[in-house]
Design a protein around this nucleic acid. Structure first.
Length: 375
RNA sequence: GCGUGAUUGGUGAAGUGGUUAACACGGCGGAUUGUGGUUCCGUUAUGCAAGAGUUCGAUCCUCUUAUCGCGCC
């Protein structure tokens, strides 16, 4: 079956919503945070560990799996779920984001038919089209497929964005026409930068195509300001249907997730918790901390005393610091567990705040703590 | 004892009679938002074993001392 979004409650004071996502693998609460597992794995973690931290949907990536091991191999393995031993919902990104960062000459390489670019592995010339992206995702057999969109840089001009909105609409239509997988849902993507008229137009036209969900793209790219990100959401949300999930692509930082929820977003994904973990950083209620700092050398307390994650229940900062400093993989693993659990716990708290109509108070308190840095 | 060669930051080490003493590692900070990241960026010796001398000027030349290595009695 395709996924279904069930709206349970809207907050009184904001546009925030509390809902449920019904999938082939069960029903999950929204707003939710989805860890990123580009290569059919959330780096260093097993599916069992993800379940233990109450993680639901996992992301994977069309472009990367297309190159290695190849869609046919995943198909032979029985689809992504079997291949990666994950019996939960999987969302595949279309590859648009990757391909556009690999397309050197935007004007020449991005054409109406698709995108020319070179493989980051061997430099081989490749061509990805909206149809091919969807076909690959069909083979991968994810639960949610994303339309192949044009993801412009934050610095793009109004005219560039206008064209990319139009093209994204045409590509969405082409992808939808070849999409045939009764078990897989397809999401459309709203573009348009921080321009009200473009976002409005993009949202209205995308919704006309009737996707199972809608995402807001082109956000959190190269130094985009927070204000522009919030504008992108605010200008898009009013035109998205109440009964479909809304997904803010690539976000993000704890405060961005809160701001997104306040504005009506249901789903988030981000590489941040796992990436900063591998580089030795941890999210905490009082801000992000760098575990390499000398002050943790003899700190035998957990990262967060009241955190229920496996890392905090069993290991000290001094030990994790030691692992990180020695470049041991277990250090990154423990921090990944903590950071993902931190964001998932954040969404759990946001859900109960919505249920109690106290989201703005929650946000104020969170920001006060988070900006405080250290206890 | 005599002869001889060394002595540069936490480490391995470049280097020159004249503005800020390479580079690498380590240390200390920072970054990171639809993952091309065991990555990237910043910072880290007011000093070249110690003292004296030559010189306008010495880490680089001379002498003394100290320490270490090598050779010979």
């Amino acid at each position: 079956m395709k996924i279904k979004y069930e709206l349970l409650k809207k907050e009184k004071n904001t546009k925030a919503r509390r809902g449920k996502l019904h999938t082939n693998y069960g029903t999950y609460d929204t707003p939710m945070f989805m860890p990123v597992g580009t290569l059919a794995n959330v780096k260093t973690l097993t599916p069992e560990e993800l379940k233990e931290m109450n993680s639901a949907v996992v992301l994977s990536n069309t472009y990367h799996l297309w190159l290695r091991p190849g869609a046919d191999i995943v198909e032979k393995a029985g689809g992504l779920h079997q291949f990666m031993h994950y019996d939960g919902p999987i969302l595949t990104d279309s590859g648009g984001f990757q391909v556009f960062s690999l397309a050197k000459n935007k004007e020449k390489d991005i054409v109406e038919e698709g995108v020319h670019f070179k493989s980051h592995l061997d430099g081989k010339k490749l061509f990805l089209t909206p149809e091919l992206s969807i076909q690959i995702q069909n083979k991968l057999d994810s639960d949610i497929a994303m339309s192949f969109d044009e993801c412009p840089p934050a610095s793009a001009s109004y005219d560039y964005l206008k064209n990319s909105v139009e093209r994204t609409l045409r590509w969405a239509k082409r992808g939808k026409e070849v999409h045939n997988n009764e078990k897989q849902s397809l999401f459309g993507i709203v573009q348009g930068g921080a321009y009200e008229d473009l976002r409005k137009y993009s949202a209205i036209e995308t919704v006309k195509m009737n996707f199972e969900g809608y995402s807001i793209g082109g956000v959190a790219n190269d130094n985009e300001s927070k204000e522009d990100m919030y504008k992108a959401i605010d200008y898009s949300i009013p035109y998205l249907p109440e009964d479909k999930p809304r997904y803010l692509m690539g976000v993000g930082e704890p405060i961005d997730i809160i701001e997104g929820v306040i504005r009506g977003i249901d789903m988030f994904d981000c590489v941040l918790p796992t990436r900063i973990a591998r580089h030795g950083n941890a999210f905490t209620k009082y801000g992000k901390i760098n575990m390499r700092n000398a002050k943790y050398k003899e700190d035998f307390d957990p990262i967060e005393k009241d955190c229920d994650c496996y890392a905090c229940k069993n290991y000290s900062k001094a030990y994790i610091r030691h692992l990180i400093v020695c470049n041991e993989a277990l250090g990154g693993r423990l921090l990944s567990i903590h950071n993902i659990r931190f964001l998932i716990r954040l969404t759990e708290e946001l859900r109960s705040a919505i249920e109690q109509d106290r989201l703005l108070e929650y946000k104020d308190q969170f920001i006060r703590d988070y900006m405080q840095k250290e206890k």
